[in-house]
Structures are given as structure tokens and as C-alpha cells.
Design a protein around this nucleic acid. Structure first.
Lengths: 217, 217
DNA sequence: GTCTATATACGGATAGAC
DNA sequence: GTCTATCCGTATATAGAC
């Protein structure tokens, strides 16, 4: 066993930076704050990370590695239906948004828009996070493949989910109104309702649609 | 007439800041850079704006005032159909994204996510920009009201347009791939295609749908 | 690996003449 | 309204002992 009960200095630094970058952003977080939050000293940090950006890269890697165990797994524990898993994931973001009174959104999205001309390594690390997230949704859609139209753009649809989440978070945060996020998700629900078959395979006892589409004259 | 040919020092400052904040972000833009770009001096800037944040507020106000003349009017000049105007607006963002090789997105969205704990005045100025943008889409949808289902959430649908634009810009910038934005817009097209009647009123000679929805078995 | 002390630069903002 | 010169805090990063 390598893991101790006490996290290593390096892990404390990455953890502190992860939290602070999410709360305040990258530029607005000073090294001194990270050191204070991690209860470490300047010498330790620069022993592990040659520069602040290397700390950011470690944080982005931690996020990517955490997508499965920290995000998807808890969100999907009690949700077997692949389409519902998509909305369970969105509900997770809603929860974080709500708990922070519309302050905490998606840390990757915030960093992606804060860093305008990022170093290639940083840009790729951000892109890798989005790709992993979208891949997870693609997985859900693939599992529900037989309930989808044959000509559907699976990747495009998965990206739409990310897009709606990120846009909904942005709007809700700016308006300080979680209803914005809810409306975005509700619209996505409508989109799925028009697209997905009423789950002949799934034994889920939900109604196949929430709001029946109005008939055309 | 008040306007001269030469823009005032104040206008040059706001214009320079507007461009720099969009290109590099708020925190990453130094006062010195603004002064250089505006060909002005520190004394002039602080004569007009007590602090950097007041310059930001002026920039956000300029954006809001420019939504009509600088954004909607040129985008809608040759597009009478209200639904097509929505996509013409999105095409405008695509153009900016493309011209900058997926670097320049939506400056308001970037600022909204960069500034995590903004001063109330700043947050409200950002929110006012989003509101004005969404209101414009609501206007389009209202004009097309008779082509929409009676129970549609007009504001929710308008916010979805903003949400898809912002999310699409975020993903395209991060992946440095405009196809991400295109896929997001294509999905929105699908959503509208399933929602909007084939324009009985509009004399536009377009086909009512691009990709016919697959029939359910 | 960790500590303290510090180098060095640059940030926003100010002073006061003109 | 505009100019130059400058204050002063804070930022990242380094040096070198332990």
C-alpha cells in the first residue's frame, strides 16, 4: 500500500488549488492562498511544480481522473436507465449550483473561458476533460441506441447535452436564478422526448413523456 | 451635433478596453495596455473612471447598447423570417469564431464565467446583456407565435438559443474546432424543426425541413 | 522534501503641474 | 482634461539552510 491516511503534501496542494481555482478562478487565486489552504510552504510547491501553470495542469488532470469516481458513479448509482442517467448527471450540476446559491458552476467551463490564450498543454487538458465528459454521454446514448432514430448524430447529441449544461450554468450564475438552468434542462427534455422512443426495453415505470407535444393542425 | 470625427478620449478608452477584455479577459488586461491601445495616459483614464471596474461597467454598457445596431441589425438585414433570424444571429457568432480560428467567442459569456464573485453592479450589467439578447430572440419567437405550439415556453426556448450559442462557443474554442459549434446549432435546428410549423405565413422559398425526422415504428 | 527570507516585476491607483 | 512621475501592495518565483 502506498496511500497513507494523511494525504501527501503534493495532494494537499493539488486539492487546495482545485478548490480555489473553482471558487475564484485561476488568475484570481494567488500562490500564497494555495499555500495557506494546503498548509504548505512556497518551497514545497515549487519543489513539485516548476510554475503555477504546472499546478493547473495537475488540477485539470485530477478533474479528468475524477469524472468517473467523483461525478458519474455517485450520480448514476441508483439510475439504471441510460437516458435518465444523462438527466441524473445534469441534476448533479443543479445540486451544486443550488447549494452555492448559483455561484458554483462547472469549474472546467469557467477555466475554459477564463484562459483566452492558454498554453497548448492547458488547452489540451481542458479539451480532454470535455471529451471524457461527452464520451460518457455517448456511452449512455449508445446503450439506448435502439430507442433512437437510426440517423441521429450521437456525438452531436452528446455535445448538445454538455452545451446545454454549460450554457445553463452560465445563465443561471449570471442571473443568480436556478430557474434558468431548469428551463434549459426542460428544453433538452423536450428535445429528447421528441427523439427517444418510449423505452420499450427499459422496465422503468415512468411516463414516457412529461408534457405531450401539441398536435399540428 | 456633438460627435466629432475623432472619437473622444473616453470613447477610445472604452473601445480599447472592450477589445482587450474580449481578447485577453478582464484580469489579464492591464491598465497600461488599455492606455497604450487607446493612446491615452493614466491621468485621463482615472479622470473618467475612478477604478478599473468602472471601466468594465462602461464596456458592459457599450456592449448592451451595441446589441441592436452592431449585432442584430447587420445580422438581420437580409433575413425577414423571424425563425431564420435566430439562426442568422448564430451564424454571426460562427463567423467571428471562424475568423479568429476558434479564439474569439462571446465576450459577455467569457466575462460572466471569468468573474466569479463580481460586484453586484457588474453582475447586473452582465445579466442585462443576457436579458437583452434573450429578449431579442423572444421577439423573433413572438413574431412566429402562430407557427409554434400553443403550450411552448417562449422564454425557455429563447434562453435555449443563448445557452446553445454559449455552450457551442465554449466547446468550439476549447477543442479549437468549429465543427463543435456547428453540431450544436444543427441540434438546435432539429429541435426547431420538431417544434415549428412549416411556415404557412412566411413567403420564404426554403424547404421547411432539412433532415426529415425518422418515423417511429 | 521542507523551511524562511527575499528577489524582482508589475499591478492598480495617486499626486500635482499644466 | 491631460500630462509625467511615482507610490505601494501583491504577484510569481528563487536562494539556500536544514
Amino acid at each position: 500500500m502506498i496511500n497513507q491516511d494523511e494525504p501527501s503534501t503534493r495532494d494537499r496542494l493539488v486539492g487546495a488549488a482545485l478548490q480555489l481555482f473553482a471558487e475564484k478562478g485561476y488568475a484570481a487565486t494567488s500562490i500564497a492562498e494555495v499555500l495557506r489552504a494546503a498548509d504548505a510552504n512556497s518551497g514545497s510547491l515549487y519543489y513539485f511544480f516548476p510554475a503555477k501553470q504546472d499546478l493547473l495542469l495537475a488540477v485539470l488532470d485530477a478533474y479528468r481522473q475524477g469524472i468517473g469516481p467523483m461525478l458519474l458513479e455517485p450520480a448514476w448509482r441508483d439510475v439504471p436507465d441510460p437516458v435518465e442517467r444523462i438527466f441524473a448527471l445534469l441534476a448533479r450540476y443543479r445540486q451544486a449550483l443550488d447549494a452555492s446559491r448559483c455561484t458554483y458552476g462547472c469549474p472546467i467551463g469557467s477555466l475554459a473561458l477564463e484562459l483566452h490564450e492558454p498554453d497548448p498543454a492547458v488547452r489540451e487538458a481542458l479539451a480532454a476533460n470535455f471529451t471524457a465528459w461527452v464520451d460518457a454521454i455517448v456511452g449512455c446514448l449508445t446503450q439506448a441506441r435502439d430507442r433512437l432514430p437510426a440517423d441521429v448524430d450521437v456525438r452531436g447529441l452528446a455535445e448538445l447535452v454538455l452545451t446545454v449544461m454549460e450554457g445553463g450554468v452560465m445563465l443561471a450564475r449570471t442571473q443568480r436564478d436556478i430557474a434558468c438552468f431548469d428551463r434549459a434542462v426542460a428544453q433538452l427534455r423536450e428535445h429528447f422526448a421528441a427523439l427517444v422512443h418510449p423505452a420499450a426495453t427499459s422496465p422503468s415505470p415512468r411516463a414516457p413523456r412529461t408534457g405531450a407535444r401539441k398536435e399540428r393542425p
